[in-house]
């Protein structure tokens, strides 16, 4: 296997890491108004405590999760400059939306708890909800479009616009991502909390999970029937089986297994995407001769060699300390763990 192919696989791994990890914190963000809303909470004070439980399940880790996409972006730039250039300039407006969403969402996490006023918190709740929903949806639209092919000319330039991305398959991809992350996030909440909220999260996971399973199978079939290979059919089957396994485990209260199940589902969905894509990185729907491929979009061997050495040394270290963070914060949270909010007081002097 040549180094460019190796880096194609590395990118698959980076996207898997990103979507598995940020996937659940997108899910938690989208569930904020649901699990922390009127339907489940007894009153406003209870709702606020429940929201804080949800936010604290991902509090120490969401930022580290997000670095996976920055690394994926950087690695695409370094290993496949043409892919990076075509993709990022071509998908300009969706990426702009994703950036804006991530900005307000992250500030929501950091700033929400810094003032006690209900209005302040409600605004950041909105930011967290939309900031989780929009990227979940748009990453789905974007990645699905990459796999299905987009208009690219002989100069490797994207020639479509925002609306050429909003095709049925792309939109279905977006919905699948949203449904999968909702399920994954609900199971994560069930895994990380205790008491009422834990059981309610499981209930939601069970319901949304079925929708996710139906949509995901439809999408993977659609993609597979277009360009499927034996290997991608295997990963499709594993993805479906893992999701069903996750839902079964969730039903009987084995949240750890259920979480592994949804994580495997997401990983296998990404694997399916990359297997279908191979050996292209961004097929052209205009003319197959103009496909961006692993070979014609990659950096030189020397750059790839440097990157490989650095990645082989540092990735294990990163995985170790990031894993350790999850270990430090492994305890389940309940509403009783949430400290009282600072009382509303004007600043003295």
């Amino acid at each position: 296997m040549d180094l460019a192919t190796f880096w194609f696989i590395v990118l698959g791994v980076l996207w898997t890491g990103y979507l598995v990890l940020e996937g659940f914190d997108f899910g938690v963000g989208m569930l904020l108004p649901v699990l922390g809303g009127k339907r489940y909470a007894s009153d406003d004070a209870d709702a606020e405590k429940r929201r804080r439980v949800l936010l604290n399940t991902i509090g120490p880790v969401w930022d580290g999760n997000e670095v996976w996409v920055l690394t994926a972006g950087g690695a695409t730039f370094a290993a496949f400059p043409h892919w990076y250039a075509t993709l990022f300039s071509g998908f300009y407006l969706p990426l702009l939306l994703i950036l804006v969403a991530l900005i307000v969402r992250n500030l929501g996490f950091e700033y929400r708890h810094k003032r006690p006023e209900a209005r302040w918190k409600a605004r950041w709740d909105q930011a967290i909800f939309w900031g989780s929903l929009v990227p979940a949806l748009l990453w789905g639209v974007a990645l699905t479009n990459i796999v299905r092919g987009v208009p690219i000319d002989a100069n490797k330039e994207f020639t479509g616009n925002l609306f050429s991305l909003l095709n049925p398959a792309g939109l279905l991809g977006g919905l699948v991502f949203v449904a999968l992350f909702l399920t994954h996030g609900a199971i994560f909440v069930a895994l990380k909390t205790d008491g009422k909220i834990r059981h309610e999260a499981r209930q939601i996971a069970g319901r949304v999970g079925i929708v996710a399973a139906v949509l995901a199978v439809a999408l993977l079939l659609w993609i597979g029937l277009g360009d499927g290979k034996l290997a991608s059919w295997v990963t499709t089957v594993v993805a479906a089986a893992a999701l069903l396994g996750a839902l079964a485990a969730n039903r009987v209260g084995r949240e750890g297994w259920a979480f592994i199940g949804t994580a495997v589902t997401i990983a296998m969905a990404v694997a399916t995407y990359f297997l279908v894509l191979f050996p292209n990185v961004m097929p052209s729907s205009t003319n197959p001769d103009w496909n961006l491929t692993i070979a014609n979009a990659s950096s030189t061997d020397y750059t790839l060699k440097v990157m490989t050495i650095v990645a082989l040394i540092f990735t294990p270290i990163v995985l170790m300390y990031q894993g350790w963070t999850y270990w430090v914060f492994r305890k389940r949270l309940t509403v009783n763990h949430i400290p009282e909010d600072a009382p509303l007081e004007p600043v003295s002097r």
Binding site: T71, G74, A78, P81
Partner: peptide
């Protein structure tokens, strides 16, 4: 993101060199 978004010809031209420190910075 914005090197690729706004400066794609630059990214193509120097991606070999400029991308590596960026990726390593993230990692």
């Amino acid at each position: 993101f914005q090197f690729g978004m706004n400066w794609s010809d630059y990214s193509r031209f120097v991606g070999d060199i400029f991308g590596a420190p960026l990726a390593i910075e993230a990692l």
